[in-house]
């Protein structure tokens, strides 16, 4: 009992004096600063890049592809789905004149073309990064 009374007394004591402490307020521009920060957050989220094809759509597409592969591989043997055979023989009968017969390309030319193509792809990558960085600012 005595201990309980002590606790109660101590509780009253603490309550009395802690409540006398004045609540401190932050500086005047505190709210304005928060609103600024939130606005900045908002703006950056507007420019956030969203993928053109979302993950969900990718999954659906993958599902359709898997099902159709299964369907074709299994269905081909079943009797109700017979893919008609297309005769491709006539392709070999067509004779095109070979236009490039007299043109010879040097190895140097080939490697130049190869490097040119590689550099185009590198440039695409670099430019893409550059613009995403600029838009983020």
């Amino acid at each position: 009992m005595g201990e309980n009374k002590d606790i109660k007394e101590l509780d009253a004591f603490t309550k009395k004096y802690i409540n006398e402490i004045e609540a401190e307020t932050p500086s005047i521009d505190f709210t304005a600063n928060i609103m600024d920060a939130i606005l900045k957050e908002e703006q950056s989220s507007i420019y956030k890049a969203a993928p053109l094809i979302s993950k969900r759509v990718w999954f659906v597409l993958a599902g359709i592809l898997a099902v159709s592969i299964l369907f074709v591989s299994k269905g081909a043997s079943s009797s109700w789905l017979q893919i008609p055979e297309i005769k491709m023989d006539y392709l070999s009968n067509i004779q095109l004149p070979n236009l490039f017969e007299n043109i010879t390309v040097s190895n140097l030319m080939l490697s130049a073309c190869f490097f040119f193509t590689v550099m185009v792809f590198v440039q695409i990558y670099v430019l893409k990064n550059y613009f995403t960085k600029r838009l983020k600012m």
Binding site: E24, P26, S27, F30, N33, I34, A37, I38, E41
Partner: peptide
């Protein structure tokens, strides 16, 4: 510290908003 407390409160509100 007042400065730290202000920074923490600001962070708190932004986190809450997000």
């Amino acid at each position: 510290s007042r400065e730290e407390a202000e920074e923490i409160s600001q962070d708190t509100f932004i986190k809450a908003y997000k």
